[in-house]
Design a protein around this nucleic acid. Structure first.
Lengths: 243, 243
DNA sequence: CGCCAGGTTGATTTCGCTCAAGCAATGTGG
DNA sequence: CCACATTGCTTGAGCGAAATCAACCTGGCG
């Protein structure tokens, strides 16, 4: 579990520097100084927007606490939550590196802390640290693998299986283990967003949730989900793979 | 349109060096020599595999002629065609850079020419040319944007609209303009693969094709597609966006 | 208190999946 | 050259799933 830095408000954000997920860890002194100078920390309330699709890029952001949703919109009001970013993740780096406007929006899905690193600082950092570019490359490749997995699932799994898979992913990051072996999640997203992630309508998500309830594999109450046996839930998908 | 290098069989592959799509263009002399030494050209017949999912990576490949399909498989025999690679595209670089086994398979979708660049050569090239890493980064980012677009469409468009969109993409690269304004495509893929790209079953693709025929917006005959008016076809999707 | 956003539920229709049959093109071995 | 299998595609019937449209509920919140 990555550490939030809400306890270090007065200090430099540790997560962005040393978090193993972060591209910024393990920089030399001059680079660290450069980073410290160009970074500005800010707290976001639930629903607050970090950057907006279409807006011109003005540097990158690094999540240091909370959860940030990356969303794509179209002119018809359709909204798809493409991915979730957690402490240590750098976001908005794609439009920075390609010098284009933001292709997605980012918003805090709960109280969050996000640092902004300005254009000049990163440009200087990249010029002085070739390794930094490679780390961005690895991160980008990781996201690409993730997207390919997603595309594959979208094409092969049923809606129910896709929702189950999503729950299994969320439980890893947001799950609280209970004494009796069950786990609970505080969903960071609305039903509509769940629906967009599964690729269906929110009414359908409601109904699938109903079926999961009657099957006893998950219990939903608002954004609270309790899963009696994560193994049983995972079995729904593994069965497909091993069958 | 990118040039195939089938006419330069005895020479070094030009596309890989100077193609604007290629990450290898515009290298200095020593780098070019390094590249020339580590590269081996090979022709592939239709259906021949370039590399196989699960196999250990042994360098990268650069498409220099034809079309190569990037495919993901699972244990149940499900197959999804994730993307198409064209002359100038470098493939298999992700597993190379992350030092892992191939996460996808690549196969020639028609007579193709693909160069292989061995491990040692790229490692040396990357070490000596920081710019090369950045080019891989940009390419990776481009693929990621593409994957996000795909995810968005999968979640918002109907199967018919997804197929129409796919046809519009294919016509750009494979289309032959006819004198009366219509365009023809030689589809590089089977109906099953079309289905996997749209995220549905091949029977459904057959039926959608039937409807496109009766609506007169496209005519299918085997892998030959004729589109009387690409604009009319594009209108099916634009209507959604502007509506 | 009324309003509103988010969520659930219901009724209806459309759509897509499954299973199954049929068909054309291709290849193969006798 | 033919019988035969194979592969890729199409078509049909039946059924289950999901989209749509609509009503309604619930918990904030001005």
């Amino acid at each position: 579990m990555a550490q939030s830095c809400t306890k270090h408000e007065n200090h430099a954000c540790v997560v962005c520097h040393v978090g193993p997920r972060s591209v910024w860890h393990d920089l030399d002194e001059t680079a660290s100084a450069l980073l410290a100078g160009g970074r500005r920390r800010r707290e976001y309330g639930s629903g607050e927007v970090v950057f907006v699709q279409g807006e011109q890029n003005d540097g990158v952001h690094c999540v240091s606490g909370g959860t940030v949703g990356i969303r794509r919109l179209d002119d018809n009001g359709n909204s798809v939550l493409l991915e979730l970013a957690y402490p240590g993740d750098t976001i908005g780096y794609r439009s920075f590196l390609t010098g284009s406007e933001h292709k997605t929006s980012a918003e805090a899905l709960g109280p969050s802390v996000v640092c902004h690193i300005d254009r000049a600082a990163i440009t200087a950092l990249l010029a002085g640290n070739p390794a930094l570019g490679l780390r961005f490359l690895k991160r980008s490749i990781g996201e690409l693998e993730h997207a390919h997995d997603m595309m594959f699932r979208q094409a092969t799994l049923s809606n129910r299986h896709k929702l189950v898979h999503l729950l299994l992913v969320l439980v890893q990051r947001h799950g609280r283990r209970h004494s009796n072996g069950s786990q609970s999640i505080d969903l960071p997203v609305s039903r509509r967003d769940l629906a967009s992630m599964v690729g269906t309508r929110h009414e359908t998500i409601s109904r699938i949730i109903g079926r999961l309830e009657t099957d006893g594999v998950a219990h939903f109450s608002g954004r609270q989900v309790t899963i009696p046996s994560v193994e049983a839930l995972a079995g729904e998908i593994d069965r497909l793979i091993s069958a």
